[in-house]
Design a protein around this nucleic acid. Structure first.
Lengths: 141, 141
DNA sequence: CTCGATGCAAAGGTTTTGCACCAGG
DNA sequence: CCTGGTGCAAAACCTTTGCATCGAG
């Protein structure tokens, strides 16, 4: 089951936050592009296309921030370039991204046992999905 | 055994490149801070301290570029913040960095079997040490 | 009416680039 | 000399922030 835009909005309202046109549009776009990894710029374009009105980039970043603090959104860094954003309804996952072409794959948390061990041997623990693992995909290797 | 600055310089000369004051200083600083991960800004500061003369930041970046193309240097990204640079004399290694405090650890390539398998299961291969794996160290977790 | 949200513009930090001048070989 | 290296200044890129205004509740 996928989170829908209204659910996001009512969660905001429940926290005493206001429902504005921009927030409505961001939530709808996020809900519709549910399985995508959108950059702030992508989000911005789609929001403007949806509303027909100009929206300031800073507003997009602020809405991302609000949704992230509310726990609905996560933003992830894929090596170079802009960060990307995705909803977090169906459990967190880690990301692999191709350094060359940008193709991505998701890693379920229960696949990460060996990696956890490797990191543990050096006194580290995974514990964040904020940065992707950068690698090479089959086509680019 | 560690690469020393003169070795770097003679390699440059052997490629038909010129030995300048700035290049001499960068190579010496790199050789002396052999096991560190320096940012371009660190490098810049130490080069100016060593020569007593102002050096333009762009010159530092260009020298990094030259040394990297010559295969002596690698620059790595540790999550947010500036990239870091280190010599590559004793075999490539991968990096783990703590997302919170920035502490780093090196992963020898022969420790990466499991990670290689994990990535392979998704059609990816490691094959670059250009981006660190971002995690949490014991103190910050 | 009131406070939160937005637009605008500017700055932030790192890195790159264009261009004219300088200097290594 | 002559080409490559450097300084300077500006831009590029993504994101954040200050401040005045707008609008949701």
């Amino acid at each position: 089951m996928h989170i829908n835009g209204d659910l996001l909005l009512s969660s905001l309202r429940a926290s005493g936050l206001r429902i504005t046109g921009a927030r409505r549009a961001v939530c709808q776009v996020l809900a519709e592009s549910h399985d995508d990894h959108l950059t702030a710029a992508d989000l911005h374009k789609r929001v403007e296309a949806l509303t027909g009105k100009p929206v300031d980039p800073s507003t997009i970043y602020r809405i991302i921030d609000v949704l992230e603090k509310a726990g609905h959104l996560r933003h992830v860094h894929f090596g170079h370039g802009p960060g990307v954003v995705h909803l977090v309804d169906q459990g967190a996952h880690h990301h692999i991204v191709c350094e060359t072409c940008g193709r991505t794959a998701d890693l379920a948390l229960d696949e990460l046992g060996d990696l956890t061990e490797l990191l543990g041997a050096h006194g580290f623990s995974l514990g964040s999905t904020h940065f992707a693992i950068v690698a090479q995909c089959g086509d680019c290797a």
